[in-house]
């Protein structure tokens, strides 16, 4: 099951999207997500779709792989659509027993479904094309101004990148401890909620102990390699903009213009029935 989760995974390929500066991708993704919540009409989503589809095309990540990311959040997805569909008040358009669907519900469910899938697919496209390290580097540099209001940007970025390195290790460890306790007759699968929660103790305690031990070891290893925070540190792979990054910024600006335009048209009531 864990293997199905493709969100946050990097897909190695050599595409223009992969080579873009992470800051460009961060800004692009950020604007893209905001644009998702702007529209009340379907026409707006056509613009969004065209932009997103061309990004996927450029990324060289197979569509199948991108769609698999949806699998992990399928429950959340169905849940949201389900609640919108059946529980919103409005004019009834369908009734079967206690199940009733309203026009408002159908409308909201459709919109939520579209928004949610674009949201998930859009942010996973960023992680598919950006290594975790580039991502944290990008965040660190993009958020650097926050340093002036005493936000420890470097430290946060470092923590993120360490977390990313240790997630697979801790997952493997979870699997191992689980099996070791099962070999001692532990049962993680049956029983009521309370019993199941209790049965997690033999798994969680060793996991925490191990995480702390690793953190301790790692801190020592980092200090031994002269780590002393962000000041005075240089970068092996410093970020600097290239021609393609400026081009990408231009495209993002055009996209921004387009959606603002669409929104204005929508406001004016010209697109409402589309």
């Amino acid at each position: 099951m864990i293997r199905d989760i493709t969100i946050g995974q990097y897909y190695p390929a050599d595409s223009i999207l992969h080579r873009l500066d992470p800051r460009v991708k961060l800004l692009g993704t950020f604007l893209f997500i905001i644009s998702l919540f702007l529209f009340k009409s379907f026409f707006g989503y056509i613009v969004v779709f065209i932009f997103f589809a061309s990004a996927i095309g450029l990324s060289k990540v197979p569509l199948r792989f991108i769609l698999r990311g949806m699998k992990a959040v399928l429950v959340l997805f169905i849940f949201t659509v389900f609640f919108n569909l059946f529980f919103l008040p409005g004019e009834e358009i369908f009734r079967w027993g206690i199940i009733r669907i309203t026009d408002n519900g159908l409308y909201k469910a459709l919109f939520m479904g579209i928004r949610l899938s674009f949201l998930i697919l859009g942010s996973s496209l960023m992680t598919f094309t950006t290594t975790p390290n580039q991502l944290t580097d990008g965040l660190e540099k993009a958020l650097k101004p926050l340093n002036y209001i005493k936000v420890p940007v470097h430290e946060i970025a470092m923590m993120m990148s360490i977390a990313l390195r240790f997630i697979p290790i801790l997952m493997e460890e979870t699997d191992k401890i689980m099996k070791a306790q099962m070999a001692r007759g532990a049962d993680f699968e049956t029983g009521g909620l309370l019993k199941r929660a209790k049965s997690l103790i033999p798994l969680l305690v060793p996991l925490f102990v191990s995480a702390f031990r690793r953190a301790n070891d790692l801190a020592m290893a980092m200090e031994a390699r002269c780590y002393r925070g962000g000041t005075g540190r240089t970068k092996m792979k410093p970020l600097c903009y290239k021609g393609r990054d400026y081009a990408a910024y231009t495209i993002i600006a055009i996209y921004l213009g387009l959606i603002i335009g669409t929104k204005l048209l929508e406001r004016a009531g010209l697109l409402f029935y589309l």
Partner: peptide, 13 residues
């Protein structure tokens, strides 16, 4: 069939 994993002390809780 008792199975003692590698580094079994990591399972103590």
């Amino acid at each position: 069939v008792g199975l003692v994993f590698q580094y079994p002390e990591h399972q103590l809780f």
